[in-house]
Amino acid sequence: MATITQLENGIVLITLAGELDNHEANQIREEVSTAIFTGKTRAIIWDLYQLGFMDSAGIGLILGRMRDLVPVNGETLILNPSPTMQKLFQFSGLGEVVRICTVEEAIDEIGGVVHEK
């Protein structure tokens, strides 16, 4: 299950819960994409704190949305994955955008970076 919130400053917060496999990724992909193309999205925060399971389909979903943000030079942060998910992100070269922190801290980080630009 995905809960999508449009925050100020073009930040989209996606809170995932339950099990993110191929079936679930296909269920939520459209909703997530629509949210990103509505308004001027410049950053996505994925909060995985409540996510119980994820496989490579989750990697595909997140990489796909990072591609959506390439034209606007947008940013992605992935928060609070389990140790097993953390390994999947590392294998896929996404280790650098993983944070163990609160949503507020992530917003701060993104806000900060963007003001500098």
């Binding site: 979903l61 990489l63 999947l88 294998f91």
Partner: peptide, 9 residues
Amino acid sequence: ERSGMGFTI
């Protein structure tokens, strides 16, 4: 949107 990571995992 497959990432090609299945076998690696």
